[in-house]
């Protein structure tokens, strides 16, 4: 994150806690509607794991939280090389025939989600995958949509949105002039 011009970075007014509450309600409703019991929650490093931790507690899920680092599944290795810092993925239980809720902080091009799903299917064959994101900022380059969205924010070209954490969680908007 670039803070060299603080005038161009400002916090987004929404209370992240309230957004997480509404995502929790939406996920409960969706699971009931789709007859999903005992889903497994998996967060994508790094921001997605922070969001998933909150949802995991709010939903009272018994299976431990999983985490994915998609560095080895990215589609830009041949252009960008390997990311210098990788975290271990941690999938604590078998995914075979289980319903998964995949969690990320910001949904943008959809490429991260594609990579995450490729990795998930190398760990097993889940019964279903539901996507929950804190923020949908638009700008999709792939046919991927989230099932549960906390906030929809239309950003101007060149603008970025970033979740800072792990505690407290704050959404920052940065880039183009205010």
């Amino acid at each position: 994150m670039s803070d060299d011009n603080p005038a161009q970075t400002h916090q987004i007014g929404a209370d992240v806690g309230l957004v997480l509450d509404s995502m929790t309600t939406a996920l409960r409703g969706l699971c009931a509607q789709r007859h999903i019991q005992a889903p497994i929650l998996i967060g994508i490093h790094t921001g997605g794991v922070w969001v998933a931790e909150r949802l995991h507690a709010r939903l009272g899920i018994e299976d431990p939280l999983g985490s994915l680092d998609i560095s080895f599944y990215r589609d830009d290795f041949t252009r960008a090389g390997m990311h210098p810092q990788v975290h271990p993925s941690n999938i604590p239980v078998s995914l075979d025939n289980r319903h998964l809720i995949l969690v990320d902080d910001v949904l943008f091009t959809g490429r991260t989600i594609r990579a995450a799903m490729n990795e998930l299917f190398d760990h097993g064959r889940p019964a279903s995958v539901t996507l929950a994101v804190l923020v949908d900022r638009g700008g999709r380059e792939l046919p991927i949509q989230a099932d549960v969205v906390g906030l929809r924010i239309a950003l101007d070209a060149g603008e970025q949105i970033k979740l800072t954490g792990p505690a407290p969680l704050q959404l920052l908007r940065q880039g183009a002039a205010p």
Binding site: D69, S71, F72, Y73, F77, T78, M82, P84, Q85, V86, H87, P88, S89, N90, D96, N118, E119, F121, D122, H123, G124, R125
Partner: peptide
């Protein structure tokens, strides 16, 4: 950094599909 990266790769062996597409092609 080599050891940290190796730590992550050692998990690949525990996947159902024991490979990653990193150096495809």
């Amino acid at each position: 950094n080599i050891m940290d990266t190796a730590e992550k790769f050692s998990g690949v062996t525990e996947q159902a599909v024991k490979k990653v597409p990193l150096l495809r092609g």
